[in-house]
Amino acid sequence: MAIITVDNLHKTYGTRVAVEDVSFSVEEGEIFGVVGRNGAGKTTTVECVAGLRTPTSGTIRVEADLKQQVGVQLQDCSLPDKIRVGEALSLYASFYSRPADWRALLEETGLDPRTAFAKLSGGQRQRLSIALALVGNPKIAILDELTTGLDPQARRDTWELIERIRDRGVTMILVTHFMEEVERLCDRVAVISAGRVLAVDTPEGLIARAGGEQRLTFRTREPVDGLRALPDVSSVTTSTDGIPAQPGRRGRAATADDAVEVVVIGTGGLLPAVMSVLPASLMSDLHVERTTLDDAFLALTGEPADQPAA
């Protein structure tokens, strides 16, 4: 059963259109991702769902009491410097008629209740913010950019916390632009670009939509423009385009031998096709992978997921 239904949501701020036309529904108990580049309309969309903004047109139906049963974690929201973790949690718990046990939540965040807000690290603030979104014992939690700005360890800790909450049956909407986060946590995702939904699918479904494509990475000094004309090739990107060719290899693109890292995405006999144009002797560091969610996102939106908006 759908617990949240959004139909033809449209939102403008003055003359600026933030959300053009967004529709999706969220099933009870699932983690639903909302992904897209910065400025795509993700935050506006979920803030409309949370009741913080009024849609210009369209309908939103939420099968829960917005104040009592929907927990919200907002981007750019902080607390007074001097409030202690335990005080914040017990205060917010007192707002709700059937709150969660804030001490148990505190234990899950691993925070010291006596620490003042100003003394918390970014990751600790984020965990407190999530705990505050959950302290009312909500049916639905809306979490906006929950791991942005966190280091990899803090990000993983946060993901574990989300997984434990999922196990309690809380329905969650997760706004993010990290594909790794989507792959790990989300049951289904809506891909939003320029205020419109491009696709709603499972992460696997999105990858399959990208055509079960293969991805060829290699380094070469030769021009690669000719590859774009090949029938099996759907995209060619080089490290000179400013796009990291492979996760984990960032910053290694430019080397002394001025070879360029190239990523070719395509179907069928991709490798023989590429080698018919560019002999193996002119390529180095060659490897072939299946499509990732990053590639699928790129194929859908024509933009890499974690590039900030220009």
Partner: peptide, 17 residues
């Protein structure tokens, strides 16, 4: 103004208070 600037008034409007 600090509370408003930090989004706390907005944050509170998502709770029953």
């Amino acid at each position: 103004v600090t509370y408003r600037e930090r989004g706390m008034l907005r944050r509170m409007s998502t709770t029953p208070v």
